[in-house]
Write a protein that binds this DNA or RNA. Structure first.
Length: 432
RNA sequence: GUGGCCGUAGCUCACCUGGUAGAGCACCGGAUUGUGACUCCGGAGGUAGCGGGUUCAAGACCCGUCGGCCACCCCA
């Protein structure tokens, strides 16, 4: 019998790692709440047409990376490859767009790509979207919020902000024509990928890594020369607000973003700690998208961060708190009536001391082997029930960590108070 | 989709130029009839990813295949 494995690129997150994930999720949720953002929970599956119409027909995502399938009624559905489209769809569907909306969501996304460090087929993002604000202070708000988040997470020293404006759709169209015209004159100096992109997504050529292509780009027309007045002014204002808040950034004129719906401000937080997939958070404005998907002409802006990549950062920088041992108290017993006594006493102990993590030994074995498990569990205390304790309605409390403390046998009625007195303010104990 | 490296015990790895598997850690039991950590003793655990080929003989060599990692591409 062949054993069944998880799908390539879709990983299990084991208890060792989930501590770090929870730390990330808690911290993000707290920061978002402190700026007044509300959580929206969205389906993982949407109509395929939603993504085709928003992300762009000629993007790699739509052309070859979507997990699409026919529903039983023949309708084409797709596992969401990103979150913005679904969020916009929900905002339109539920008429949320009459007022400003500050929203966030969290969950899995799916793209059929070759897995590598920081990239998998099922990956997890936290996304943030704001609808209904056309002015650039919201651009700055989002960026400031992410900057605060990196500080809270303790990774701010290892991420850098890149910023650009890609102007309006018509700015970009004019620029695209100029760029294609220029590059067409140097066709044989371009690498193979860039030659292909000349016809599909010419702006992506700007961030090519090929030295020959980069040389050609030296003399290429600049997108910034094609921006209209409003785009220039808004971008200048974003920079001004960031300066005022002392958030450092670098303007990267090659920064374009892969999805079609972006316009004006785009930004990326990048790191050199993660190998080739160094973008940890990215986003931008998408003022035409709501209308494009059938809503009123409401401006939008948003970003997404990759949870896997942030977790890798936390790990690399040892920024997350050490994982807590799973137990505060480990309970051993000699079976039979001692087991019954332990069960009864522990239920009332859990009621009396909420939050105290009490692990009851299961699976039998000698006291010796049970004590070994107690030690391995990282628990601070072992509670011991044997025949003597049952006979005297008491329990033995043995300290496993403290130096110099003796084990004591207490009447059952006093155990809760005893443990309560000795609980540290921070109830978590450090394990392994 | 393309390329490079790699698949030996649960984990990290060894077995040198082919002679039918070994260590450390982890796990289980014991030394200590009801008490962990250190130490000592013992035990279990592998059809060497899978399939084919070369050979008297393959974990070692060759081909294929599946899987992993990293990079290209793409992007969070």
């Amino acid at each position: 019998m062949t054993t069944i494995r998880a799908i390539r690129g879709m990983n299990d997150i084991l208890p060792d790692e989930s501590d770090r994930w929870q730390y990330l999720e808690r911290t993000v949720a707290d920061v978002l709440a402190s700026y007044g953002y509300g959580e929206i929970r969205l389906p993982i599956v949407e109509q395929t047409a939603l993504f085709r119409r928003s992300i762009g027909e000629v993007t790699d995502i739509v052309e070859k990376e979507m997990y699409s399938f026919d529903d039983r009624n023949g309708e084409s559905l797709t596992l969401r490859p990103e979150g913005t489209a679904g969020c916009v769809r929900a905002a339109i569907q539920h008429s949320l767009l009459g007022t400003v909306q500050r929203l966030w969501y969290s969950g899995p996304m799916f793209r059929y790509e070759r897995p590598q460090k920081g990239r998998q087929r099922q990956f997890h993002q936290i996304g943030v979207e704001v609808f209904g604000v056309a002015t650039p202070e919201i651009d700055a708000e989002l960026i400031l919020m992410t900057a605060r988040l990196w500080r809270e997470l303790g990774i701010d020293g290892d991420v850098a902000l890149q910023l650009n404006s890609i102007g309006s759709g018509s700015d970009r169209q004019a620029y695209r024509a100029a760029l294609v015209s220029y590059l067409s004159g140097h066709l044989d100096a371009l690498d193979e990928d860039s030659q292909r992109r000349l016809h599909t997504n010419p702006l992506r050529i700007l961030d090519s890594k090929d030295p020959g292509t980069r040389a050609v780009l030296q003399q290429a027309p600049l997108l910034s020369d094609y921006l209209d007045e409003e785009s220039r002014a808004d971008f200048a204002r974003v920079c001004e607000l960031l300066d005022a808040a002392s958030v450092p950034y670098v303007i990267n004129t090659a920064l374009v973003r892969g999805l079609d719906y972006y316009n004006k401000t785009v930004f990326e937080w990048v790191t050199d700690r993660l190998g080739a997939q160094g973008t940890v958070c990215a986003g931008g404005r998408y003022d035409g998208l709501v209308q494009q998907l059938g809503g009123k002409p409401v401006p939008g802006i948003g970003f997404a961060m990759g949870k896997e990549r942030l977790v890798l950062m936390l790990e690399a920088l040892q920024a997350a708190p050490l994982p807590a041992a799973p137990a505060d108290v480990y309970v051993v017993n000699s079976g039979g009536s001692a087991e019954c006594a332990a069960f009864a006493a522990l239920e009332s102990l859990r009621g009396a001391l909420p939050g105290l993590r009490i692990v009851q030994h299961a699976g039998g074995g000698s006291f010796r082997s049970q004590m070994k498990k107690a030690d391995k569990s990282g628990a601070r205390w072992a509670l011991i029930w044997g025949d003597d304790e049952v006979a005297s309605a008491s329990v033995t409390v043995k300290p496993l960590r403290e130096q110099g403390e003796e084990q004591v046998t207490l009447p059952l009625a006093e155990v809760a108070a005893f443990l309560q007195r000795r609980r540290t303010p921070d109830t978590t104990t450090q394990g392994n």
